[in-house]
Nucleic acid binder design. Structure first.
Length: 431
RNA sequence: UCCACCGUAGCUCAGUGGUAGAGCAAUCGACUGUUAAUCGAUCGGUCGUAGGUUCGAAUCCUACCGGUGGAGCCA
């Protein structure tokens, strides 16, 4: 008996094999039954003829319930009627465990119900495909940075201080001290860049914001590269190369998944470096031309503004040189326009919003001390960060890519809650 | 925190002042190529909770609870 998985059935054409599987759905007539089987690696249809398997076994097959686990033995045959191209002619099966009243029936369900059953919803075709795309993005990320000489460094998740004062932090106790869950590993990655030159991190971040939109999660994953001896423009080139690599990898390695998701491939095929760049100044002007009267120079962009700017381009677009006042304390001012920061947001097409935020960092000790004063960062918690500018400071840049927004964009999923296995949302900590 | 919308069968929804409904699921039956199979039958209810108006409330009013979308903030 040869055990295999559905993704490998093509290697066993016209052979008898055994699959461990779950019953996804079934259809039956008087003398023939069709079992839709899934094993986590794919979906295949099993065909049972009453005359081939005997009446008792056939009746048992007809009464199988959705999501019952079973071992199925049969011959893999080619069939043009199957979307996979293959079917299994079932010779025998044995039930491992019979599932009763599986909640997610093959009909439509609402968001709340599906989210309450997220642990089961992950078994469905669409959710399965989204997670495979997510996995491919992660795989392509490691591939890109490893091939380009980056070292993966893991910043801490429990911290004694915040990276950016503005967002709300999750508070917890660290024995007798106060501690917070990380909302960004960036400051630690700057230290790592001074030790390893080019580094990247991949880990969870936590924001206790009361945000309730299709672009927000309370717990989400970020990829944060940081590069010594790279300026703002060098960083933009890394970003567009990286994002292009990820999109092209998904196109190449997730064909079946993108088809299941009914993703428009032509728009993804266009995602190749270089990406267009527009300055904040020009973006404001563009918005005024598009009829946005509610925004003035010095304001930050809201979601409708980002979408309007992205609509003008087929690729992701960099918005560069934001006013220093609306950006984080560590960003380096443009020497030619000291009121602007050497920074950029990368806005994804099709209304998916900001997927990357990055900047060149301040490398001058005195200027960083000034920023500390302005932002009241005078405690002990940030002293180590200051020392990075004291002991061999160099120009350096970095960025952070939000994984879930990137998955949502590439997979063509409307809401980021479907791009992470177990989303943490406002009002949702279960399952 | 603010704004809008929604809570009716296991699920998705209709019913907007006068007997609580449909489709799907489940159960039983028919059918040898189905793809959300089809067809027939059966089963299925504290109409989110509490109060109020009314001869009469799923329906109108008030409060609360829960959800969805959005804003601000951000990736």
């Amino acid at each position: 008996m040869v055990k295999t998985t559905i993704q490998d059935v093509s290697k066993h054409l016209n052979e008898e094999v055994t699959l461990g599987a779950w019953l996804h759905n079934k259809r039956s007539s008087g003398k023939i039954a069709f079992l839709q089987l899934r094993d986590g690696t794919g979906f295949i249809q099993g065909v049972i003829g009453k005359n081939d398997i005997g009446e008792d076994k056939f009746d048992q097959a007809k009464s199988l319930t959705q999501e019952t686990s079973l071992y199925v033995t049969g011959t893999i045959v080619e069939d043009k009627r199957s979307p996979l191209g293959f079917e299994m002619q079932i010779k025998d099966f044995s039930i491992i465990q019979e599932a009763e009243d599986y909640p997610i029936t093959p009909k439509e369900h609402g968001t709340e119900f599906l989210m309450d059953h997220r642990h089961l919803w992950l078994r469905s075709k669409k959710q399965h495909s989204v997670m495979k795309v997510r996995n491919e993005i992660i795989r392509a990320t490691y591939e890109f940075f490893n091939e380009n000489g980056y070292v993966k460094i893991d910043p801490p998740i429990l911290t004694g201080s915040s990276a950016e004062g503005t967002t709300e932090l999750f508070h917890t106790k660290y024995f007798d001290e106060d501690a917070y869950l990380s909302q960004s590993g960036q400051l630690y990655m700057e230290a790592a860049a001074m030790a390893f030159n080019k580094v990247f991190s991949f880990g969870p971040t936590f924001r206790a914001e009361k945000s309730k939109t299709r672009r927000h999660l309370i717990e989400f994953w970020m990829i944060e590269p940081e590069m010594a001896f790279m300026d703002h423009n060098d960083s933009l080139e890394v970003q567009e190369q990286y994002v292009s690599h990820v999109v092209q990898s998904v196109l190449q390695n997730c064909k079946v998944e993108l088809e299941t998701l009914e993703r428009d491939l032509t728009s993804l095929q266009k995602i190749k470096a270089p990406f267009p760049r527009i300055t904040y100044d020009d973006a404001i002007q563009l918005l005024h031309e598009k009829g946005f009267t509610d925004i003035e120079w010095g304001d930050d962009f809201g979601a409708p503004h980002e979408t309007a700017i992205a609509e003008s381009y087929e690729k992701p677009v960099f918005i560069t040189h934001f006013p220093l006042d609306i950006k984080a304390f560590y960003m380096k001012p443009d020497p030619e326009r000291p009121d602007l920061a050497l920074c950029a947001d990368l806005i994804a097409p099709e209304g998916y919003g900001e997927i990357v935020g990055g900047s060149q960092r301040i490398d001058d000790l005195e200027l960083m001390k000034e920023r500390y004063e302005e932002h009241n960062l005078t405690g002990d918690a940030y002293q180590w960060y200051l020392q990075l500018r004291q002991y061999g400071s160099v120009p350096h840049s970095g960025f952070g890519l939000g994984l879930e927004r990137t998955v949502a964009w590439i997979a063509g999923v409307e809401h980021v809650r479907e791009t992470i296995p177990f989303p943490r949302l406002l009002n949702r900590l279960y399952p």
